[in-house]
Design a binder for these strands. Sequence first.
DNA 1: TAAAAAATAGACTGACCTGTCTAATTATAT
DNA 2: ATATAATTAGACAGGTCAGTCTATTTTTTA
Lengths: 183, 183
Amino acid sequence: MPSKKRDQLIATANELFYQNGFHATGIDTLLDKAGIAKMTLYNHFTSKEDLISKGLAVKSKKVLAWLHQGLEDHAVSERDKLFTIFDIYEHWFKSDGFYGCMFAKAAAEFPDPNHPVHKAASKHLAGLFEMLLNIATNAKVNNPTSLAEQMVLLLEGASSVAFSTGATISARRAKRTVIQLIR
Amino acid sequence: MPSKKRDQLIATANELFYQNGFHATGIDTLLDKAGIAKMTLYNHFTSKEDLISKGLAVKSKKVLAWLHQGLEDHAVSERDKLFTIFDIYEHWFKSDGFYGCMFAKAAAEFPDPNHPVHKAASKHLAGLFEMLLNIATNAKVNNPTSLAEQMVLLLEGASSVAFSTGATISARRAKRTVIQLIR
DNA sequence: TAAAAAATAGACTGACCTGTCTAATTATAT
DNA sequence: ATATAATTAGACAGGTCAGTCTATTTTTTA
């Protein structure tokens, strides 16, 4: 069921959960910010965790689309996309809205691998890998699968380190790594 | 003030916070498991967050010492330490007690960079980098600083991906990356 | 053995949590 | 305009949260 209120709830939820954490953010805080009644939430979602799961699915699509568009806009070739993605990350790291990788945080707060939230987080990484594999294949590098796997590690590592330490330069270090790998 | 009860509290706290999360783990649960009275906790620590901070400092020392010992035991040369550390990580990933990097999780749940818990997490990454820089320097690689930086990204990335997706093979992918970098 | 320190159980506070219920109101259809 | 659906405010329940207080008991020290 598509719905305007539903979309607003997911948008506000994603924002607050991302910035302040899932357990640390209460339903009432979220509803206040969204200006929506509690029963409306429970008419659209079965529980807080349901809202989180559905929100992560939406966020994953948005993130991958945002990356795809950024690469289309700024990379000068298929091969250049392999490097440009780290520039996009660096720009993200330096922005106000950067609070690390939301999916890594979700998996951390819901450690049970069978939990829907944990699964949603895991699914995003699979989507990210797919995207990178596509790019690496089109770029005709030696071993596209291997490079895509390595880039997932570097992107996630850079996000984690940048958020924990504030070292936004992590993105450039990751980029340099990929350059060395391809050379 | 060193104290047996204090050590037990930190040990139990680290275990539960690591496995189940910081906000998700209540003080009472922790005290039940440790078999220690609540007032004893508040005689040794000013608050739950204080317990978390002090616990992370202890954990950081333990982790770095554990890595150091593992490398002494299994690496055949200084240079081999650069690879063996990923074998240690892989073994860790496959163990029952693996729930990702505790420090990344702490930074995630306490996003304010000025919060003592976030700082404690950040400090650990600095310690990890120091250790890697030392090894890279002794191994006489081309650019020790650069390699140590890259290894931090790879180790954190591998931890995050392994925990989120269950792909313990991430450790080997990270190892392969370092091999390619040094070659 | 006596004095001092540490740890105990457990009640208690006030706040916050998720989720439910009701009854009135608003918006959307036909 | 009328019927249907969606949304609303707000009270409410039952639980959990971190942290405090007291009075008692245990442990350590001298």
